[in-house]
Amino acid sequence: MKHVLTFLELESGPRVDVTWDGTALSLPEGSNLAAAMLAAGVGVFRHTPVSKAPRSPFCMMGTCFDCLVEIDGVTRQACMVEVTEGMVISQPQELGGQVNEM
């Protein structure tokens, strides 16, 4: 995973550990998950089910659904979730490798 820091955090506060796609991340407690992941250098949140194109947050206000991630087994909008200790986050499971078996 690339960790190019394209964003800067202006302040620092208490942090908690979460898991992102199997690796540990330390994010500000209670912060917006999408913002925290961006600031931690997560560049790609998911790949689209249609063309597998990479995506990351676009609107930050819960309307575009490009920041979808899977949290504890449920697909959620990262920009509408607050960071809590021990969250298990991953790219959403979409249709497997091959397309259109039907």
């Binding site: 089910p49 959403p92 499971q93 979409e94 249709l95 497997g96 259109n100 078996e101 039907m102």
Partner: peptide, 21 residues
């Protein structure tokens, strides 16, 4: 629903998984 990995093989009157997932 959202697009999901293969969950249902054969269609029924209750549910079917469409080719898009």
């Amino acid at each position: 629903t959202e697009k999901l990995p293969k969950l249902i093989n054969r269609p029924s009157l209750i549910a079917r998984q469409v080719d898009e997932g």
